[in-house]
Measured scan of single mutants.
Amino acid sequence: MFKRLMMVALLVIAPLSAATAADQTNPYKLMDEAAQKTFDRLKNEQPQIRANPDYLRTIVDQELLPYVQVKYAGALVLGQYYKSATPAQREAYFAAFREYLKQAYGQALAMYHGQTYQIAPEQPLGDKTIVPIRVTIIDPNGRPPVRLDFQWRKNSQTGNWQAYDMIAEGVSMITTKQNEWGTLLRTKGIDGLTAQLKSISQQKITLEEKK
């Protein structure tokens, strides 16, 4: 169930391209415009997507990853294993993690069937560096609404905000991946996880038929 919630949630996290980005210092504006741009692209490019579902990787690479804190999220997933990894191991892992996100997020976007969304009203940021933004996803086919909290983090150097995690039903996506990959990290280390991520990233994206 959580895996499905995570995939549905990713439908609204794909941010804007650099040329049309919203105010990078306001995570609420980023979330709002990102959702609108993403849904528009999914709707307008269905012919290309249906002809070649792996085209979704391109959308992810162009529109999402430049505005997601990939390395920060990847380091959180590694936890204690990050500090013990060599620079070469980290570089290989982050490259594999990025390719994994292209496949995983692309597969999530393949679930698009006309969903709509509501974003919580903007709250004062103050001096906060981590801000959760509640998004409610509404399914046109009558499924119950899904309420999610996207975690946005302020870059201490640039002042810009980027998304790095999502919490559904009190469970963090980062925590879920830590639990899912924990045994592999304990037995085969970061190299074993890197190899698995490379394998997963090679899987073809498949479209979910409308139910």
Rank of each mutant, 00 (worst) to 15 (best):
T129M: 03
S201P: 09
R4E: 01
E180C: 06
A34N: 15
L109H: 04
D23K: 03
A104C: 15
L109K: 15
I133M: 12
N52T: 04
V146G: 07
Q89C: 04
L125W: 11
M7D: 00
K102H: 06
K37A: 06
L78E: 15
K71N: 05
M1R: 04
V77N: 05
A168C: 12
S156F: 14
L148P: 07
R143D: 15
L185K: 10
E91W: 14
G170T: 07
L197M: 01
M173G: 04
E45C: 14
F150D: 14
M111L: 03
L64R: 06
E91L: 01
G170C: 15
K29D: 01
K198Y: 00
G114P: 12
G126H: 00
T129G: 08
K83C: 00
I133T: 13
Y82E: 03
F97K: 15
Y67P: 05
Q202M: 11
Q107H: 02
F94K: 04
A35S: 13
T187R: 03
I119V: 13
G170F: 04
Q203I: 00
D32Y: 05
G142V: 08
R90E: 11
Y164E: 13
Y105C: 15
K154D: 12
L193R: 10
A92G: 04
L193V: 07
Q24F: 01
N44D: 14
P66S: 07
I205V: 12
R4G: 06
K188L: 08
V70Y: 01
P132M: 02
A110M: 02
D127A: 01
Q103D: 03
D139S: 09
K198R: 08
A35W: 12
L65Q: 11
E33S: 08
G114E: 02
A96P: 03
A92P: 10
E169Q: 14
I119D: 14
L148G: 10
L16K: 00
L16P: 10
L184T: 01
L78M: 05
L64P: 03
Y117I: 12
I190S: 05
L16A: 13
W161G: 04
P27I: 00
D32M: 01
K3P: 07
K211S: 09
L184E: 06
P66K: 01
L125N: 11
K177S: 07
R41D: 09
T136Q: 10
H113G: 09
M31Y: 03
L65M: 14
Q69A: 10
K83A: 01
M173A: 07
Q36N: 10
I49L: 01
Q123R: 09
P121Q: 13
Q89E: 15
N44E: 01
F150C: 14
G79A: 09
L10I: 07
R143Y: 13
L76Y: 13
D40S: 11
L193E: 07
L42C: 15
T86D: 09
L109P: 05
H113Y: 12
G106K: 04
M1S: 01
Y112I: 03
K37G: 07
Q69S: 06
M7Q: 03
L42I: 06
A120W: 15
A75I: 02
P53K: 00
Q202H: 15
Q80D: 13
T158N: 00
Q24T: 04
I200A: 04
E208G: 06
P47I: 05
Q118G: 11
Q202Y: 15
N26Y: 00
A73I: 00
A73S: 08
E33D: 04
L125S: 05
E33M: 00
Q157R: 08
V12P: 03
A195M: 13
T175P: 08
A14N: 08
G189A: 14
P145E: 12
S84C: 01
P121M: 13
L193I: 06
R50C: 11
Q69L: 08
Q36K: 15
M166N: 13
T38I: 12
T86C: 05
P66D: 02
M111Q: 01
T206A: 09
R98Y: 15
K211Q: 15
K43H: 01
N141D: 13
G74N: 13
V8W: 00
P47R: 07
V171K: 04
V12A: 06
M7A: 11
K210D: 04
D127Q: 10
Q89M: 14
A73T: 11
A195D: 07
T38A: 05
K210C: 01
K37P: 06
F2R: 09
M173Y: 08
N160T: 12
D23M: 09
E63G: 11
G126I: 15
L76M: 08
H113P: 07
P140N: 00
P87Q: 15
G79C: 03
V77D: 05
Y117C: 07
I200H: 14
G159K: 13
K211W: 11
L42E: 05
R50S: 04
Q48Y: 15
K128P: 07
M111N: 11
A18L: 01
M166C: 15
L101E: 00
T194M: 02
V131P: 09
A35G: 06
A21H: 03
L197D: 07
A120F: 03
Y28G: 12
G192A: 00
E180K: 09
Q62L: 04
T129A: 04
T116Q: 06
G182M: 14
L184M: 01
T25Y: 14
A18W: 00
R98V: 09
Q123F: 07
P121K: 04
P121L: 13
I174E: 09
R57A: 03
Y164G: 13
L10W: 09
E180F: 12
L148C: 15
L30H: 06
K177I: 14
I133C: 13
M166E: 06
M6P: 08
Q151N: 06
Q123P: 04
I130D: 07
E91S: 08
Q162C: 15
I59L: 02
L11H: 01
P27N: 10
E91K: 01
E45H: 11
A92L: 08
L109A: 09
R186Q: 07
R57C: 06
I174D: 13
A104K: 06
Q103H: 01
D139C: 12
V70G: 10
E122Y: 11
L10A: 03
E33F: 02
R57S: 02
T20L: 10
I137P: 00
T58I: 15
N44A: 08
T129N: 12
I133G: 12
D54T: 00
T38H: 13
G106S: 02
W161Q: 13
G106F: 05
Q89V: 04
M173K: 03
T176L: 12
S172Q: 11
G189F: 05
Y28F: 14
T175S: 06
K37W: 08
A75E: 15
L148A: 13
I13Q: 14
T116D: 03
A85S: 08
Q178L: 15
T25P: 05
E208R: 11
G74P: 12
I174M: 12
A9G: 09
K83P: 02
E45M: 03
A14C: 01
A14T: 04
L10P: 09
I130S: 12
Y105A: 15
N179M: 12
R50E: 05
K43S: 02
